[in-house]
Nucleic acid binder design. Structure first.
Lengths: 222, 222
DNA sequence: GTATAATATTAGTATATCCTAATTAAGGTT
DNA sequence: AACCTTAATTAGGATATACTAATATTATAC
């Protein structure tokens, strides 16, 4: 069995690889708030495991092997099922789930996970709209656009909110930017300026910077 | 925050202290399946913590301080609430809960625990009939007798089953010796021999050795 | 009351994970 | 092409937890 630490590295490498195509030592270190040498050490160990979880090229970075990707998707499945469980069964809000899911994901047996998945009706999305990999690590394909990419006047349904900080999630919830809410871009300031968004849930308008709108996604199948 | 390892030592010392009055190095080592020197090291560390969790006398053993007892009861509360949750919400059987609860108990935030307790209606007993300490570490008083202590012809309601091995629990469940079931001692063989027990749930009779009947408890308030 | 058995501790290592400080490699600039 | 900056690695340690083998202490038994 993998240690919690290795599982966390797997998750991080998976995210970085899918967001930027490549997981460098310092990107991993930043994301996990550990020092660079700790990452180098760990990457060597993960590349030396049987089977190797990553391929590692010194001075370049890491890439998940098929075995590593499968394990990463397992951890992500558990994390997202836990978040869904915390919201649907225990009444957490979407900004409260992350830290608790981060600890529970390393303490879950296969039986626990399958029971939770069944209890929730085998959900395919977590409370932030992220896809939940199935038992075999398969993810559905879906097409979405970032809210930033919409032009003024366009509208759509929020399908995913990839904000990492709980405070941002809490704020978005407060102003009516929740999952599955239809929104319209009223205005888009030039020079990478803020977007003014109307929520059809709350009926209110709010200006949001692009670091935020970049992380809000709209269902592309209008 | 305490490490999982320290939490496990606390639990073990608590149990030994309450069963035998004293936690010796080797009793702790046996119970946790670790080597004696590991225990000595840990006891020193726990006695040196601020505040100390135990008082430790070399060559004698350990005893929980008030602070240590409070922490131990916290862990036991989480463990027993988790077991109750696994049975009532996720459909585990009473023999399946232990290992999973043992891992979850170290990954639970105060919020999670309070939500689970509330979801279950703040239960006071776990699936084995063990008392669940309240938020402040308080346990109800109750009086019970071991099944072994009943004479032939006497009957009572099973209030607690303290079997440690899952296989024993599974077997007891199969033959109808479950919590809250009324049973009668039909026969009690001499020379520490087996007891023949009738279950009014299953309607069947079974001979059980005293290592087992010692760990089955009967409500003393008939 | 000394010899022995049982129990506990110390000594010395190992592993996993993290750190800081010092060094080395890669890539871009003039 | 030598230089400088940035990023990554190596060197050297720290902590928490475990182990085995060797030693010390306590308790028991004659």
């Amino acid at each position: 069995m993998l240690t919690s630490s290795v599982e966390n590295y797997l998750k991080t490498i998976y995210y970085l690889q899918h967001e930027t195509g490549w997981a460098s030592t310092s990107a991993i270190a930043d994301h996990m708030t550990v020092a660079n040498p700790s990452v180098t050490m760990m990457l060597k160990r993960m590349a030396a495991m049987q089977p190797p979880l990553i391929s590692y090229t010194p001075y370049e970075g890491a890439r998940l092997t098929p075995a590593g990707e499968k394990q990463a998707l397992d951890v992500i499945r558990v994390h997202r099922l836990m978040e869904t469980f915390l919201v649907r069964v225990l009444g957490y809000t979407w900004d409260e789930v992350h830290a608790d899911a981060d600890r529970l994901e390393h303490a879950s047996s296969p039986l626990l996970i399958e029971r939770i998945s069944a209890l929730l009706g085998n959900p395919v999305r977590d409370p932030h709209g992220e896809d939940i990999p199935d038992r075999n690590g398969l993810l559905p394909n879906r097409s979405e656009l970032s809210l930033t990419s919409l032009a003024a006047g366009q509208s759509g349904r929020i399908s995913r909110v990839a904000a990492d900080k709980p405070e941002i999630l809490r704020y978005l919830g407060e102003i009516g930017l929740n999952l599955d809410v239809t929104v319209e871009v009223l205005d888009k300031a030039p020079f990478e300026g803020p977007l003014t968004i109307h929520s059809f849930e709350s009926g209110s308008d709010h200006a949001l910077g692009r670091e935020v709108t970049n992380r809000i996604f709209i269902d592309a199948a209008h």
